[in-house]
Computed example of a mutant assay.
Amino acid sequence: MAGTGEDPGTGTDAASGATRGPAGGAGSATPSAPRSAAPSGATSPAWRAIGLIWRQETPLLEWAAPAAPAASPTPAAPTSPTLAHATVRTSPLPLGAEPAFTVGADRRCVGVWRAGRRVPCPAGAPVPARTRGAQCATCTALDRSSSIAADTRPDDPRAFAVYLAHHGSVVKVGITAEERGSTRLLEQGALSSTVVSTGTLMAARRSEHLLTTALGLPDRVAAQRKRTARARPGTPGERAAELLATAERVHALPAWPPIGQTPREPHVTDHTTAYGLPPSGLVPTAAVQPLEPGQTVTGRLACRIGSDLYLDTAAGLVLLDTRLLAGWALHPAPGDAAFTAGLEPLDDPREPQALF
């Protein structure tokens, strides 16, 4: 989801629903929800998807009804948005739910997060349909001007944790605000994780850099590598053993932890249950391509992990990157609507690749 950085994705209040539960019945979180991908009251073109967020280990699809665009920013102050906050709603995404929606006429910038709330784009700027980012250049610059990820908020007073995250085929190192708990790990789709130290932000950055240089741990993992690993996620025990072994190497470093960070006894948390990722893994046959106006997406939710949804459809298991939804107005589709969005066939990563 664009614009979250290290800030928690909090909405102003909850929607009454977005999906229908298994076997055509009402989902447990939304007993009277229509079979729709939009929250009730969201049939107006003004309601636009923002993306998938995680709150208390629960995945939610977030929506915004943007405020009326403010006057265009002046050249002297190109990054000052209106102070008004967007009206935000969230829709639950329970396993077995059946989202069904049709894409609206255009895609618009989703704005930025400030102090845990969404500020709409001052210009309501259009965003290219084929990009995964849903921010205009002005909002992107504003987002990065006060961002933990971009190292432009070094004076953040919160406590920060240094974690190890297991992504099935690799262990990475990262940092997150301690108050966010496991939210950052769920946002990135980590299969298991453990915290190795906590302390100040700048000390956390120094610790992260030390672990990348001394142990060769990456500080990021490509989305494609994460998705490939979901075909063979391994067992919680296997992942825990690798994380604990890596944590032991961390604790053995002579220059660790840097001043400002305190070691933590490793405790491994497995996240696959929150996602609904089966031990046997997931192998989608196709991925949804960038959306176009008038296209329809339908299916039954088989898994929610990171920013990805896996849908059981007539075409097989389909991967939907929810970043492609951000900025679009999405309208409820009829119960018998056909899946018309473009699909890109995917190879089975379990099969040996041809060498010639």
Rank of each mutant, 00 (worst) to 15 (best):
M1D: 05
G3T: 06
G3R: 05
E6D: 15
E6A: 15
T10S: 08
T12F: 02
A14L: 13
A14F: 11
A14N: 02
R20H: 08
G21Q: 08
S28G: 00
S28D: 06
T30S: 15
S36A: 15
A37M: 11
A38G: 08
S44L: 08
A46Y: 01
G51I: 06
G51M: 10
R55D: 09
Q56T: 11
Q56G: 07
Q56E: 15
P59A: 04
A68N: 01
P69W: 08
S72V: 11
P75D: 02
P75Q: 00
S80Y: 06
P81M: 04
A84F: 09
A86I: 07
T90S: 12
T90M: 12
L95F: 02
E98D: 01
T102G: 00
T102D: 00
G104Y: 13
D106K: 04
D106W: 01
D106T: 11
D106R: 13
R107M: 03
V110G: 03
G111R: 07
V112G: 09
W113M: 14
W113E: 11
R114W: 12
V119H: 12
A123W: 04
A125T: 14
A134R: 04
A134P: 00
C136Q: 09
C136W: 11
T140M: 10
L142C: 03
S145N: 04
S146Q: 04
S147N: 14
S147V: 09
R153C: 00
P154N: 10
F160V: 05
A161S: 15
L164A: 05
G168E: 09
R180F: 03
S182E: 15
S182G: 01
L185V: 00
E187W: 06
E187V: 06
G189K: 06
S193H: 13
S197T: 14
G199W: 11
M202Y: 02
A204N: 12
A204S: 15
R206M: 07
E208G: 10
E208T: 09
L210H: 03
R232S: 12
E238A: 15
E238Q: 14
E238N: 01
R239E: 07
I259D: 14
T262F: 04
T262Y: 04
P263F: 05
H267F: 00
V268D: 06
D270S: 14
A274R: 11
Y275G: 03
G276R: 14
P278A: 13
V283P: 07
A286P: 07
A286M: 06
A286D: 04
V288A: 12
V288W: 02
L291Y: 07
T296E: 02
T296Q: 03
V297K: 01
G299F: 03
R300M: 01
A302Q: 14
R304S: 12
I305Y: 01
G306Q: 05
T313I: 02
A314S: 13
A315I: 01
L319M: 04
L319V: 07
T322H: 05
R323W: 01
W328A: 12
W328D: 09
A329I: 02
A333R: 03
F339S: 00
G342C: 02
G342R: 09
G342I: 05
P345R: 12
P345A: 10
L346E: 09
Q353C: 02
L355I: 12
